[in-house]
């Protein structure tokens, strides 16, 4: 589902003396089957922005379209129920939302809530469990006796069981160990590539942005200050530094070599891209020594 923000603003407690603007005049477009990373400091408005995507928060002004759905300040909640089925939200530490007696029941809860019969929902739950990399032996276990990383997979399986077209992820790898982080990001990448899921990822991990995102939105103090491809965002070292954003390691490294006179066709953002460009200019045996 394509996503469009047109002049979207959101103010907490609007119309009261406590009014706090959190998002101001944000406009951007994300194509269907896209992968958008949203970066920016804690408190820059990232989480407020993504809560608009399934209308947990409706804009104070402006308009959002998600596929065929349009959300304006006046949209009624009844009109939004089908939207919520299409937009799967994975919040920070989603494992804290597990509540059922067994893993299977927990995953099947959402589909049943949207009208699916128990048998079908259980079958779907088992399939989703497999998608997130847990075998069927987990289905009968209590979610609370699993490890943190396994609990998070179960929570994500519960979101996937809604068969969303858009997956919204708020720092999905926080607190996982490096291997767990890598597996989790690979899972989202697979869902994006194989099933065409649109992904919106809020993250502090610039390496993940460089490796997976197709578009990047940079938020600062509630405003969208940059929007483009990872290359558009990461190529301007001075701008990144002024905004206290890190460059991916490979780009930092490439810039150090650039300072010594190595020229890059395009600034490499990942170790793979850097190695590609290094290999191209690597002196081969048999080359004439000048």
């Amino acid at each position: 589902m394509a996503i469009t923000f047109e002049h979207v603003s959101y103010t907490y407690q609007a119309g009261t003396p406590m009014a706090t603007p959190a998002v101001t005049d944000v406009s951007f477009q994300m194509p269907d089957h896209g992968y958008l990373a949203i970066i920016g400091h804690t408190g820059s408005g990232k989480s407020t922005l993504i809560q608009q995507l399934n209308a947990l928060l409706k804009p104070t002004s402006g308009q959002i379209t998600v596929g065929d759905f349009t959300i304006t300040p006046k949209t009624t909640n009844a009109a939004l129920k089908p939207l919520r089925q299409h937009v799967g939200m994975v919040f920070q530490f989603p494992e804290s939302q597990l509540f059922e007696e067994t893993v299977r029941q927990d995953i099947a809860f959402g589909p049943q809530n949207f009208g699916m019969g128990e048998t079908d929902a259980n079958k779907l739950a088992d399939a989703m469990l497999q998608t997130v990399g847990l075998d069927s032996s987990y289905a009968e276990r209590s979610p609370f006796e699993l490890s943190g990383g396994q609990m998070r997979r179960v929570a994500i399986a519960g979101v996937l069981a809604m068969r969303p077209k858009v997956l919204v992820l708020d720092e999905p790898t926080a607190g996982l160990d490096p291997q767990g982080r890598q597996e989790m990001m690979a899972l989202f990448d697979r869902l994006h590539r194989e099933q065409g899921l649109s992904v919106v990822l809020v993250t502090h991990q610039m390496e993940d942005v460089a490796q997976y995102a197709e578009q990047v939105a940079v938020m600062r103090a509630g405003k969208l200050v940059k929007f483009g491809t990872p290359h558009d965002v990461f190529r301007d070292a001075a701008w990144l530094q002024a905004n206290q954003l890190d460059m991916p390691r490979a780009a930092q490294f490439a810039q150090k070599l650039a300072a010594r006179g190595v020229t890059w066709q395009q600034l490499p953002l990942t170790a793979e891209q850097l190695a590609d460009q290094l290999a191209e200019r690597w002196p081969r045996e048999g080359d004439a020594h000048v």
Partner: peptide, 23 residues
Amino acid sequence: LIKLGLDLPFTAKLKTALRQRGI
């Protein structure tokens, strides 16, 4: 290192990528 619960240092990732390219 991944098995030990650590991430790879960037230089180790780059070395792996270079080796795959015959360097």
